[in-house]
Write a protein that binds this DNA or RNA. Structure first.
Length: 881
RNA sequence: GCCCGGGUGGCGGAAUGGUAGACGCAGCGGACUUAAAAUCCGUUGGCCGCAAGGCCGUGAGGGUUCGAGUCCCUCCCUGGGCACCA
């Protein structure tokens, strides 16, 4: 038997045996509860896995292994998110075809996942680029199309000039392409969208029932961005401010009354409106320009042109000066009938609300800044109280709007004196009663732009008929196969490379007429929005899935991955699931009942202090240097930092290296133990060494005890090793509970304590039966975390088969109970002594025992005892003065 | 600016309102060794003390409580997300 942890001697052997036994093939036996454990669908990168990625896969594996041993049918699959830009860009760079490339990379991932002992059922694996998979991605697209949830629209979209494709809003961060950091441009191209906005409210509401990290739920709520407010109508009047607009003009519809609608969340401040703003793209702008005098018309047109020319990044920079132009027209404030000037300004966005606002400079900082620059009046209408209205004026003098919702209305006609909340309610009702406006909810989220003008994606299954209409490709004609091509580089013209392939492009519609295929492909997030359903029934060629199988396995019970997907994948997958629920194709409204985000593994990385005048990359305050160069730098110039492992930083540790040097189980134990699951960790060779030591101690304990091991210990328990049995059953409970709640670090800690205790206990030659139970239990509790070592030791005890097939130990609450406890004795809240007591001791007994302590007597000497607090099993606190 | 996290020994971290620092890493002392590595044993928050013991201590300040790392208020630092979204 192994006397120390020597992974080279047995780990590979066990992996081979597991593979030979098909150990991780999904069990679907009747009468067992199910458990679906899933890792985020990875894109297989050419760099392979780092030990950072393992931080995702190891914990899920531990939980799944324990669940299986507890008798669950466990679904623990893995596949590859192979379609999409990262793969295609990599393929272009390497002059390879993405198809063969992703399979090669996927094989590497699989090899590495096997190397660290992850128990995936590979028989269920697939690539999202497999026609047998994307056929059904297309099929789901047609389902959305039939329901009006997939539509084509000419829109000003975010275009990445480097990746040469349109991007979803979620893929644009701070005006830059999330993937390559290139500033995005606005382009008017017909694009495909999914109508996720129809589901905005449900996507917010159903978060409540999910067992997800609060941070992620919050991010989703913020991204969807519900705002409750009032939308109302404003009438445009002549420049003199009187009467309805009916300016004399030779234009035919010049006397048509002009109106526009505004949305506000602060209807309570309506009496403070001193101007209105239209977005430069607002449809009313051209009407106003047409009716304006020559000089103003030119000014308006110039401003609209200038706004259009600005990129989103510049235009939406929050610290930019507020530009704008006065239209010369006015609008009537419905609350007090007063006319206010209408400006055009690009700080108002056409894409949100109505593209027009009522501006209240007294209580909105943006309006305040604009009003100051353009000399518009600022009227305070909210104050802490009527008496304290001067505070508001003082703030304005200091250049600040008062955005607080605390306080009451002032200068607000009959509403003066009302609290903000009441006034919001009352003004909303008043507007509704007169039909001027109504209370309304707006969402920040936009529809999901799904089309990409790229080759390597799932073709959108749509035909453009000769008459200009569109139709979805019929199910029996799916999949629309992505053609095999030599060259697939994207062009600058906004057209997909597929548009240049006549054999693909030309097709016939359902009536046999000539038609043109849609040539855009779907962004990768479409493919990953349903893969968790396919895993339930991956070999189904008749349909996307058998509803019974999905009904059995869904929802995912533990979904594990990085927090960076908080609002993209997780929102899209929830949306698709809801649509499929509405169609009746799945029975769950939410795909992922429980979500856990693992922390990252950081590598120590050398940086050099910038030289004078050196320009740094965005977000960096030093210059990345290679480990070689670092050796030649002076200590003053060199800075070591902990940063996320990545190929480009040169700080990656691969599982291959870690396993070769320390062993797979050591890597597993280290990553589980080093920090809480969700925390970032700093990679350390010393820490790995600690894991090796722990596993060696386990081996030594089991091998030293081995000769005394009694397989029939159950019949031989004598009642002597009470402590041993108590540790055993306490540890079973602790480890089981901790794994369940993703507290792997404390689970390992509990095993370490257990091992330390048992190491002492075997020095005593008695209690062999109790120790036999303990050693068996130790191996089984260790099995999900260090499965190779557990199986090796299990066999060493003379057992046959795998620990994976053994029953998970059950904690006996009676045995876990302590019969003697240490009671803390405090005087005035300060610890003065600890005393031993029976666990069943009554409060009175504890109080008497505490009073009997010499140390306590010393501290209460001469004082009056005012109160004694007894916490059974814990402490006695004597309050004396 | 808004919304979430997080500040505990030299380090990673543990602690249902009830003995702060479990467990591990690093350090120190010792055993084994010709020696080193490995391993094992002991020790390790700070200050005072020969010791017994005492005092201080969970970012800062206040509060609630018999008792606060934990709950409440104010502030500081820090990580992340969103951000001209009306």
């Amino acid at each position: 038997m192994q006397e120390r942890y020597e992974p080279l001697e047995f780990e590979a052997k066990w992996r081979q045996r597991w593979a030979d036994a098909d150990l991780f093939k999904t069990r679907e036996e009747n009468g067992r509860p199910k458990f679906y454990g899933l890792d985020f669908f990875p894109y297989p990168s050419g760099a392979g896995l780092s030990v950072g990625h393992c931080r995702n896969y190891i914990p899920t594996d531990v939980l799944c292994r324990m669940k299986f041993m507890q008798g669950f049918n466990v679904l623990h699959p893995m596949g590859f998110d192979a379609f999409g830009l990262p793969a295609e860009n990599e393929a272009i760079k390497r002059q390879r075809h993405p198809e063969e490339m992703v399979h090669e990379y996927g094989d590497t991932y699989k090899r590495q996942m096997d190397l660290i002992g992850i128990g995936y059922d590979w028989s269920r694996s697939f690539y999202s680029s497999d026609p047998s998979y994307y056929k059904w991605t297309q099929w789901i697209f047609t389902k959305l199309y039939e329901r009006g949830l997939a539509y084509r629209s000419n829109a000003a979209v975010n275009w990445c000039p480097k990746d040469k494709t349109a991007l979803a809003n979620e893929e644009v961060v701070g005006g830059l392409c999330e993937r390559c950091g290139t500033p995005v441009e606005k382009r008017e191209i017909p694009q495909w969208f999914f109508k996720i906005t129809d589901y905005a409210q449900r996507l917010i509401d159903d978060l409540d029932d999910l067992d997800w990290p609060d941070g992620i739920k919050n991010q989703q709520r913020n991204w969807i961005g519900r705002s409750d407010g009032v939308e109302f109508e404003m009438a445009v009047v002549g420049a003199d401010g009187s009467g309805r607009f009916d300016l004399e003009s030779d234009q035919a519809d010049a006397d048509k009354p002009l109106r526009f609608r505004v949305f506000t969340t602060r209807i309570d401040t309506i009496f403070g409106m001193t101007f209105c703003v239209l977005a430069p793209e607002h449809p009313l702008v051209s009407d106003l320009a047409a009716r304006a005098d020559e000089e103003t018309r030119v000014k308006i047109q110039e401003y609209v042109q200038a706004a259009r020319a600005l990129g989103d990044t510049t235009r939406q920079a929050a610290d930019r000066e507020k530009t704008g132009v006065n239209s010369g027209f006015h609008a009537i404030n419905p609350a007090n009938g007063k006319p206010v000037p209408i400006f055009l300004a690009d700080y108002v966005l056409m894409g949100y609300g109505t593209g027009a606002i009522m501006a209240v400079p007294g209580h909105d900082q943006r309006d305040f800044d604009f009003a100051r620059k353009h000399q518009v009046a600022i009227v305070p209408v909210i104050a802490p109280s009527i008496e304290e209205s001067d505070q508001v004026v003082a703030a304005h003098t200091n250049g600040r709007a008062v955005e607080s919702k605390e306080g009451v209305l002032i200068n607000s006609g009959e509403y003066t004196g009302q609290a903000v909340a009441a006034a919001q309610q009352n003004l909303g009702l008043w507007m509704e009663s007169l039909g001027i406006g109504e209370r309304k909810v707006n969402y920040r989220i936009r529809d999901w732009l799904i089309s990409r003008q790229r080759y390597w994606g799932c073709p959108i299954p749509i035909l453009h008929d000769a008459d200009g209409s569109m139709e979805a490709v019929a199910e029996e004609c799916l999949p629309v196969m992505l053609p095999q091509v030599e060259s697939y580089e994207p062009g600058d013209d906004g057209a997909s490379p597929l548009a240049g392939i006549p054999e693909f492009l030309n097709a016939t519609d359902s009536e046999g007429q000539l038609a043109r295929r849609e040539t855009d492909t779907m962004g990768g997030f479409a493919c990953s929005s349903w893969y968790f359903l396919r895993f339930c029934d991956p070999h189904n060629f008749e349909s996307a899935w058998d509803p019974e199988k999905v009904k059995y396995w869904m929802p995912v019970d533990a979904y594990v991955g990085g927090a960076e997907h908080a609002v993209m994948h997780l929102l899209y997958a929830r949306f698709w699931t809801k649509v499929l629920f509405d169609i009746g194709l799945v029975h769950v409204k939410e795909p992922f009942a429980r979500l856990q985000n693992q922390g990252q593994v950081l590598g120590l990385t050398p940086y050099r202090k910038p030289r004078d005048g050196e320009v740094l990359d965005v977000g960096e305050d030093g210059v990345l240097v290679s480990f070689e160069d670092a050796k030649n730098l002076s200590e003053a110039d060199l800075q070591w930092r902990w940063v996320r492992m990545s190929k480009s930083k040169g700080n990656v540790v691969t599982p291959d290296e870690a396993v070769a040097e320390y062993g797979a189980d050591a890597l597993r134990i280290y990553e589980l133990f080093v920090a809480p699951f969700e925390a970032d960790v700093q990679w350390s060779n010393e820490g790995m060494q600690g894991a090796v030591r722990f596993l060696s101690r386990v081996c030594r304990l089991v091998s030293e005890f081995g000769p005394r091991y009694r397989p029939t210990w159950r019949e031989e328990l004598s009642g002597s090793g009470r402590d041993i049995r108590r540790w055993t059953h306490q540890t079973i409970k602790k480890v089981s509970d901790d794994i369940e709640k993703f507290a792997f670090n404390t689970a390992v800690s509990a095993l370490m304590i257990y091992v330390n205790n048992l190491t002492d206990a075997i020095k005593d030659s008695s209690s062999d039966a109790e120790l036999s139970e303990a050693v068996e239990t130790l191996i089984l509790l260790l099995s999900p975390m260090a499965p190779h070592t557990a199986d090796e030791l299990w066999e060493g005890l003379g057992k046959t088969g795998f620990t994976y097939h053994a029953d998970w130990p059950r904690a006996d609450e009676e045995l876990a109970k302590v019969d003697e406890v240490m009671i803390a004795v405090q005087v005035n809240g300060k610890l003065r002594d600890t005393i031993a007591a029976r666990a069943s001791a009554s409060n009175e007994e504890l109080e008497i025992a505490a009073m009997g302590s010499e140390k306590v007597v010393f501290h209460i000497d001469g004082k009056e005892i005012r109160k004694v607090i007894v916490v059974p099993g814990k402490l006695v606190n004597i309050v004396a003065s």
